[in-house]
Amino acid sequence: MNQTHSGKTAVSGHDLYRFLEVKTPFWKWIKRMVSYGFDENDDFIVTDKNVRDETAFGNHRKIKDYILTLDMAKEIAMIQRTDKGKQARQYFIEVEKQYRRPKPMTATEQLLLATQSIGEIDERVTKLEDTFPISNAQQQELNQLEHAVAIKHLGGMNSNAYRKLKGKVFSQGWRAFNRHFHIPRYCELPKLEFEKGKEYLKMWAPDTDLRIEIQEANGQTNMF
């Protein structure tokens, strides 16, 4: 825990990362955290940091570190949803109370401050969570729905079209889905868009050329 030139409490991104025991590589993790609505030079700055490394020249090497404001560190701890995250959040809340305290506070005042701080964080976390990618369970639900819709258009799992064209139909369905929601992969659909995603899949149909291939594979002559 340090202070910036303006007197604000600051937290090392690497220190917080190690405390939280995150399994993802630091650079992937910190970039994802930053993408949740934080601004450089407002919520954090990027700086060089010397760390000890016995294999490096002079036993030290230089790395990039993210220096976070207390508010940003607190919110990052909150959204981890782990015991370590809860511990870090409580610690930051206590630090925040100490720095905000102009004079000794009564127990009632301390409780009020803590309640207000947590309330503000919870509100922002709720907004952040809406931008999070859908959960594994939601991914599975979309997968099952897309599978069912594709099978219906193929004429069932026992159809010739299913045996010959299922990969093509599945692939076209997901490409259309990703293009509609402006995402690289369906698993990155924001939670806020989950219900819309389900409705889209229910309404999706193969394009005309693919429908013709399906009907020819199934020995049908009519398109509709």
Rank of each mutant, 00 (worst) to 15 (best):
Q138F: 03
N218G: 11
V51Q: 06
A161L: 13
F38Y: 12
G13T: 12
T69I: 02
E193P: 03
T55W: 00
L68D: 08
Y91E: 08
E123K: 15
P133R: 00
K166D: 14
I63K: 07
K127E: 09
W29N: 09
E123H: 05
K86R: 15
A176V: 02
L16T: 13
P102N: 01
F57V: 07
N41Q: 14
R185L: 13
V51F: 13
N158S: 07
L16D: 05
K31T: 11
G37R: 01
L201T: 14
I93P: 06
F38Q: 03
Q144H: 07
W29V: 05
W29G: 09
S6N: 09
I214A: 04
T47M: 02
D48V: 00
N160H: 14
K168Q: 12
A205P: 00
E213M: 09
A176S: 15
N41S: 12
L68I: 06
A10W: 02
L145P: 05
F224M: 05
E40N: 08
E123V: 15
L128P: 02
Q110R: 11
Q138D: 08
T131Y: 07
G119E: 09
R81A: 13
I30V: 10
I30T: 09
R163F: 07
P102F: 08
E146T: 03
A77K: 05
L189E: 06
